[in-house]
């Protein structure tokens, strides 16, 4: 019985992955056909490996929040606040040598502060949701504004420009010929995939999302697990913030505003059930890749950013329709 269930869920999941792969190949083919000389250049794909990790991490964070039927609308706020707090620290501690040559210890401290910001922010979200009983949408909508607001208070509005070289390496550098953020993403994604599928914590999250009441009667510590999941979400968001500030050498309170919609879209597109219980890192990764190809293709075709936003929104609604029809036949 149990083995049968496992096989069935595996087939279902692979079905979804296969669909995503087909879609990716389709997008790739169409974009290649539309502008073969520009789209197929190595430079295009290389730049995608630099941009995609931020969005990928935010989407994985969104997926984790959705596993328990929640959502985290504060991820972008957390990412920006993390980058800004680190930036403020670097500017305070910058010696006569200038910010670029800040010592490795300071950079490490900045990293701790950024990740700590994510952890604290995630804890606040988790406590509001589990202890105060606020619905995740409104709790994270509120905290997201507070985090963004704090970022504005800290910077006064304009961007904090200038980060240490070692910090910028995280967003700009290369490891063995591959983009550092891409390597970071691969490592973190693998780690999260392991945690979600192979540890008690991950299984618990899936079970809580599938059937909260059954999970409660089975003796799962729902509150604690949900709290942990939001802490993890916060930390992932702050890693995205580190990469973003490293790549652009700046941090600002309103960077990546359109990432929120895109993260939700990718999570849903990647096979996550927003009502909880289903979602894979692999699905998210393929979905991010597909949408990055799509958006870079449209940029090459000289679509304006606003039109690309329109297309993202249309895509989200389209995915809802497709998912609805898929579930109907099942």
């Amino acid at each position: 019985m149990k083995a049968q269930m496992n096989i069935r869920s595996l087939v279902n999941r692979d079905n979804n992955i296969v669909q995503l792969l087909v879609m990716t190949v389709l997008i790739f083919a169409v974009m290649t056909a539309l502008s073969p000389d520009k789209f197929l250049r190595y430079y295009n794909f290389e730049s995608i490996t630099y941009i995609f990790p931020e969005l990928g991490l935010l989407s994985i964070a969104m997926m984790i929040a959705m596993l328990t039927g929640g959502i985290d609308l504060s991820v972008v706020g957390v990412a920006n606040l993390s980058g800004i707090l680190a930036g403020v620290l670097f500017h305070k501690l910058a010696g006569a040598a200038g910010i670029a040559d800040t010592g490795i210890l300071t950079v490490l401290l900045g990293g701790v502060i950024a990740l700590g910001t994510g952890l604290v922010a995630g804890t606040v979200n988790g406590l509001l949701i589990t202890r105060m009983g606020i619905t995740p949408i409104l709790a994270t909508l509120g905290t997201g504004q507070v985090f963004t607001g704090l970022a504005i208070v800290l910077t006064g509005g304009p961007a904090i420009v200038g980060f240490p070289t070692a910090w910028a390496f995280l967003g700009n550098g290369k490891i063995l010929g591959l983009a550092t953020p891409f390597v970071l993403f691969a490592v973190i994604a693998a780690l999260i995939a392991f945690v979600l599928t192979r540890t008690a914590f991950g299984i618990n999250l899936m079970l809580i999302g599938t059937n909260p009441k059954a999970a409660l009667f089975a003796g799962l510590k729902r509150e604690r697990m949900v709290l942990y999941s939001y802490m993890l979400t916060g930390v992932l968001a702050s890693v995205a913030g580190i990469i973003l500030s490293g790549r652009t050498n700046a941090a600002k309170s309103d960077y990546g505003n359109s990432y929120l919609l895109q993260a939700v879209l990718i999570a849903v597109l990647g096979g996550t059930n927003p009502a909880g219980g289903r979602g894979t890192v692999l699905g998210i990764t393929i979905a991010v890749a597909a949408l990055m190809l799509l958006s870079s293709g449209f940029q090459i075709l000289r679509f304006s950013n606003h039109l690309i936003d329109f297309i993202w929104g249309a895509f989200l609604l389209l995915v809802i329709v497709i998912n609805a029809y898929k579930n109907r036949t099942r």
């Binding site: 949408i137 919609l261 679509f303 039109l307 329109f310 993202w312 989200l316």
Partner: peptide, 19 residues
């Protein structure tokens, strides 16, 4: 879920208007 639907329609309408 209404949140996801309205996020999508919001992006579409704004994107269309500005684009």
């Amino acid at each position: 879920i209404p949140l996801i639907v309205t996020l999508g329609t919001s992006a579409m309408v704004r994107g269309f208007l500005l684009g």
